[in-house]
Write a protein that binds this DNA or RNA. Structure first.
Lengths: 300, 300
DNA sequence: TGTATCTGTGAGCGAAACTCACAAAAGGAG
DNA sequence: CTCCTTTTGTGAGTTTCGCTCACAGATACA
């Protein structure tokens, strides 16, 4: 089924004319003479079998059909332009496509990104959220993952360690917990649906014991944190994800944070992981994570 | 700010090639030789500064960038094609743009439309929902309105009366109302927010009296009917809007329906109201409304 | 190895599109 | 009302871009 479309160059001339309200200005923008644009519009109207402009004094004005067409064409050209510019950016290594968990993006990466843009105003960062499971590809250049050890061999070899991680239980200050030495009194445990094992690992690592009164499970770490903020219980989270909440006093970490063996890593996921933009991004994020560590020490 | 776009004809060749997975087939679809398409793609890749296809055996396969571009371009061309075909339809009078209330569209027009398409397979009907207030234009060719009498003089003159209307109170069968002669026992009245006056007019016209125990108001007639179906009270609605519900026994009309002075009318709203499609639509809807009347008599 | 199929490319040609110049129409200033 | 400016529309001529044709290189398959 071949497409039924008018000459696309005519559509382009039409859109410029409609947008600028003048054949002359459109011709100026397109780098042509007004006669050329006038002819293109004429050709388009012949194809359509009806006028798209009415005469308004010495100029033109869109009629109803022209207006309808204008909206469609303008939107389509906008879309084409965005997609095309993205391809250009990618071709010249001026953009990097990063995939990471929604939680990391929302709680750390996006708030820190302005610093990256200040350093590299010419580099464009494209973010894709991936759930922890299907974190493979989908066109990303870099995948940021907490658990690179669980990746295939070849990925482990190439993965770039960015920072150590430390987990600990957090809750709202008003949430009544009795912290006695190395024991957390009976609490409602907030767990991530797919990684409930993390609590066990943490207890083994830290020596803390948390008696569980009840358990709430959520499909996203982000929701776990929101639940903790709302005073629903105790969530086990990475330190950096709640740094701001701790500093602002919205959350407390009664047992501090315990380092884990796994670290945050950047896994190259396309050949463009070696592009200038990707390498700038990796350098920046490693430094930024380290700077955060220097500010707020890790309690154990 | 002039647009930054590659040659659009090259995008078209690219999209066809990407879709069909073959330069040869794309050339076939576009009515060109494979050499022409190959050159277009080459030009596009030169513009982009990077390849969009990888060689796969004797054929081609999109690389990551090509795939990203393909999605954008395909979507944009789809949009252009739809918009363009609509302009073509409108130009040759093969489409009609009808504006009416959401309630009429959902409860009567859309269910009856298949009959129109059977009679006029070549005519395309485009529907716009308008709230009763801002029913003026927005590009429609015909506006279907219950209250043409409240329209400006010139519209009244041109309006085409389609059918008489009759209003009456309806409720769910299980809704306990005592219908005694010409009085409806104390009931919960379901009213449309902006036309609560309708109840008064109806009582004056019909001679019925409805004692009101409580009142529920909704912003849409559709919601009023849903409320009545749910057994929340008694709604005052036009007969046709609930014909199916009455027939199926989901609703009852304890007082029957009373004709109103106003009728359903089609108001021409653009010069294309005289197009073959628009006239076919008016003829059809008038007949269809009349046929409905013949089937189900009006009780008073 | 031979054959069929597919893409890429150099040369040449042709149609489409552009430029130029002028005409027509409308608005504004005097 | 008239002149001048601005804007669009169009006929004629020219350029350029894109297409065709033919052939070459590469791959798959028998």
């Amino acid at each position: 089924m071949p497409r039924r479309l008018p000459p696309l160059s005519a559509l382009r001339a039409f859109e410029a004319t409609a947008r600028l309200g003048s054949v002359t200005r459109a011709a100026d923008e397109l780098g042509r003479t007004h006669g050329a644009v006038s002819r293109q519009i004429r050709a388009l109207q012949d194809h359509a079998g009806s006028a798209l402009f009415d005469k308004a004094g010495t100029g033109l004005r869109l009629n109803a059909q022209g207006e309808a067409l204008r909206q469609v064409v303008a939107q389509a050209l906008d879309q084409l332009e965005r997609g095309w510019l993205r391809v250009l950016d990618e071709a010249q290594g001026a953009s990097v496509h990063v995939a990471c968990s929604a939680t990391f993006a929302m709680r750390w990466l996006v708030p820190h990104l302005p610093g990256f843009y200040r350093l590299h105003p010419d580099v464009k960062v494209r973010l894709s959220m991936t759930s922890a499971r299907e974190i493979r590809h989908q066109g990303a250049d870099l995948v940021l993952a907490w658990d690179r050890l669980s990746y295939p061999e070849r990925d482990q070899a190439r993965a770039i360690r960015l920072a150590d991680v430390a987990f600990g239980p957090v809750c709202a200050p008003r949430y009544k917990v009795s912290v006695r030495q190395r024991r957390l009194g009976a609490a409602t445990r907030i767990v991530h649906e797919h990684t409930s094992r993390a609590w066990t690992v943490w207890q083994d690592n830290s020596g803390h014991v948390v008696k569980t009164a009840a358990e709430l499970s959520f499909p996203h770490t982000h929701l776990c944190i929101e639940a903790a903020l709302s005073g629903l219980g105790v969530a086990l989270v990475e330190r950096r994800m709640v740094a701001d909440d701790l500093a602002a006093g919205r959350l407390i970490a009664p047992c501090g944070f315990t380092p884990f063996a796994d670290g945050l890593a950047a896994v190259p996921a396309s050949e463009r992981a070696a592009s200038p933009a990707a390498r700038a991004f990796v350098t920046w994020i490693a430094g930024e994570l380290a700077a955060g560590d220097a500010g707020r020490g890790v309690r154990t």
